[in-house]
Every structure is written in structure tokens, then in C-alpha cells.
Computed example of a mutant assay.
Amino acid sequence: MIRKGKDCYRRKMEHQLQQNNICGVWKGLKTISGFKEPKSQPVGDQGSHLPDTSTVHTLSCATSPPSTPPCSSLLLTSHQVRNALKKNRARKAAGPDGISSRLLKSCADQLCGIFGYTVNLSLNLGRFPCFLFTLYTADFSYNTPSCHLQKFSDDSAVVGLITDGDDREYRGLIQDFEDWCLRNNLQINAGKTKELVVDFRRRRHSPPAPVSIQGTDIDTVKSYKYLGVHLNDSLDWSDNTDALVKKGNSRLFLLRRLRSFGVQGPLLRTFYDSVVASAIFYGIVCWASSITDRDRRRMDRLVRRASSVLGCPLDSVEVVGNGRMMAKLSSLLNNTSPLYRTV
């Protein structure tokens, strides 16, 4: 009966993989692995940051864009709003309003009615309530040899090179950005903003004075996750490797569970490529050529363990990194967009 049950489940998983039903696959894996959602409440807000003399700031901003013509033909139902609230990530940090994503997800049934009414009223009137929408910082730009503003969606990073203790341009850019946000009805979430300082001087000096935004001193951290990559104040990728190895080991457990249920061959390899390899090789173009030998050996051991589960050889970290680097360079060279310029 156990063998029969495993064979039945194997066929079900193969069908879901063939139909590209990733949601169904994950639900099944959570069931067989005994996964349970953590009961602890999310810890305080975290933001984004970069090297110092540089600093990186994550801004979560709310504003009311210009009014648009009414759109009475579009109507949201309570069911659609409930589904949207249920998709909230419970561990995601709260925004400037301080409302936890876990609360929105847990109370979706109670909130869907009033939220649906508010959105439909907004569509009928052609006006956006200031607490419903996010305005990005695309209109603000700054770029000099020693200071620039790096932006990705609503994650904004101020990066500055400070020489001989002269940080006037760096702090001036932060103040200009803060003033611009105030003029455009954007609220900077100072609690999610962090600063990462990389000191290239041989002699250690006293830490610089903290950056202040809206009267709040910004925390200085030794390591921070920015756009999925872990950066530290030594720029040695050790924190990033630790995170990748930990994530890879947890996903190898799921790979072994699939094999124990009889899933073999191409389907198991497809699961490895989409779930395991996508996690351990994330951002490999950035770090593959500059990680230490110790970190490279740790990553290669992880790949060899995956190879033993699959029963087939897998490329090492160096081979994968070189291949993806060449692919990225080829795509840049073959891109005829005027946004790219090749020399």
C-alpha cells in the first residue's frame, strides 16, 4: 500500500511538472516535508544599503498621482480583492503606515469589502487616494564620478565615495533627495533605511557621524541584502555564500523527498534547475570571479551533493559562472538599443 501510494503521488507530481503547475508542486512538497508556517511575528523593518562611503536607502513612498478620467467600466469584486490580500507575503516588512502584511493577509475576509468599495469609488471618481498607491522616484537622478543614486523600482541606493573626510556631496545628495520627496508628496521610510560603510583606509578611524533623515539617525550595519545579494563591509562575498549554501541545503531536502517518491529522470532535473540551481546560482555573474577558494569549495560541495541525488554530473560553480558571464556579455554586445553603448 505504501509503494502504491508513492507511485500514485509520483504520477501526480509528474503531471503537475509537465503542466507547469508550480503552485501545486510547492503545496505537495510542503505536505510531504511537514513544512509549517512560522508563528512568530515579523521582526522590525529592514531596508536597503550599500557600500559606503556609500550608503543605500530603501524608500517606500505613497502619493496621489494626477487625476485621470473616470473608469466606470472597471469594477472589482470582493472576491478579487480577497484573493489579492491573501497573496500578501506575511514576512514582508510593513510600509510607512506601519500595517503588517500578516495582518492584511489574515484579515482578508474582513477587509475585502471596504477595500473593494474604496478602490471602486476611486475608479468611478477618477481620483487616487493618497494611501493606496506608490509613486516611484524615476524623475530624480544624480550621477557624478564620486556620487550617484542607484534606483530599482522603489529601492533607492545613494552611493558615495568619500575622500579625505569630505562627505559634503554625499550628505548633500541625501538632503536633496529628501527635499525632492517632500515636494512630491513622497514619504521616506527612515526605519527601513540602512547605511553600509566600506572603509578602504589601512588605519581604522572613528566611524562617521550617522546620516539623519527626517530627524531620525540611520542605523549603520555590517551586512545587508540588496536586490537579493548579500553585501558586507569587507566586500568578500562571505555573507552571500553563507546565505546561498543555507538556502541550497534546504532545497536539496525537497529534491531528496521527490526522489524518495519515485520521481526520476528529466522531471527531477527540471525541478533541480528551476528550484535548486536558480537559488544557489543567483547573481553568479557578480560574485563567481571574486569569491574566495574556501567559499568556492563550499558551493562545489553543494553541487556535488545535488549531483549524487540526480545521479548525473553537474557543472561546477566556475563553469556555470563563466558560461553565464559569456552569455551576459553576448547579450549586451548584440543589443542594438540606444541605451547601450559598446566600445
Rank of each mutant, 00 (worst) to 15 (best):
R202M: 13
L17G: 09
S48A: 10
F200P: 14
R305D: 11
Q16W: 15
P96K: 09
Q19N: 15
K247Q: 08
T342N: 04
D154P: 00
M299K: 02
A157Q: 14
G160S: 15
R324A: 05
K39A: 11
T68Y: 00
M299E: 01
Q41L: 13
P66N: 03
E178M: 04
N249K: 15
Q110L: 13
R89Q: 09
P207H: 05
G95Q: 08
N120S: 10
K39C: 08
N240S: 07
L186W: 03
T58I: 03
S64E: 10
T144P: 01
S212F: 01
A90L: 06
E178Q: 13
K222E: 09
L125S: 07
D45G: 14
D7T: 14
V158S: 02
S54K: 05
A62C: 09
Y117I: 09
M1A: 14
A90Y: 12
R183V: 12
H57I: 10
D293N: 08
L125G: 00
A157L: 08
D233Y: 04
S206G: 04
S223D: 06
D139R: 07
C23V: 11
F271P: 04
N88V: 11
R296H: 03
G44K: 15
G283N: 06
R203Q: 13
N189G: 13
V56P: 01
R297H: 08
W26I: 14
S278H: 01
M13F: 08
V285L: 08
G98D: 13
K192W: 12
S260C: 04
F140H: 05
L161C: 07
Y136A: 04
S250Y: 02
N335D: 15
Q110H: 12
L255S: 02
A243V: 05
S330W: 14
L314R: 08
V303A: 00
V275T: 07
T58N: 07
Y117T: 13
K105G: 00
N335R: 02
K105C: 05
T270I: 06
D176S: 14
L75K: 11
V198K: 12
K92V: 01
L161H: 07
A243T: 12
V303N: 00
N322Y: 03
L268M: 03
V276F: 14
D239K: 10
G191D: 06
Y224D: 11
T31W: 12
I280E: 01
A279G: 00
N322K: 13
S337A: 09
K225I: 14
L231K: 03
K222G: 10
Y170R: 04
L231C: 08
P129I: 08
R251C: 02
G24L: 09
R201G: 08
R11Y: 08
K87F: 07
D273N: 12
S146C: 12
D236S: 06
R324Y: 05
D199A: 10
L125A: 10
Q19Y: 12
Y272A: 02
S206W: 04
S73G: 06
Y117N: 12
I291H: 01
S101N: 15
C112W: 01
E169H: 03
S278G: 03
L186C: 15
D199Q: 12
S153C: 10
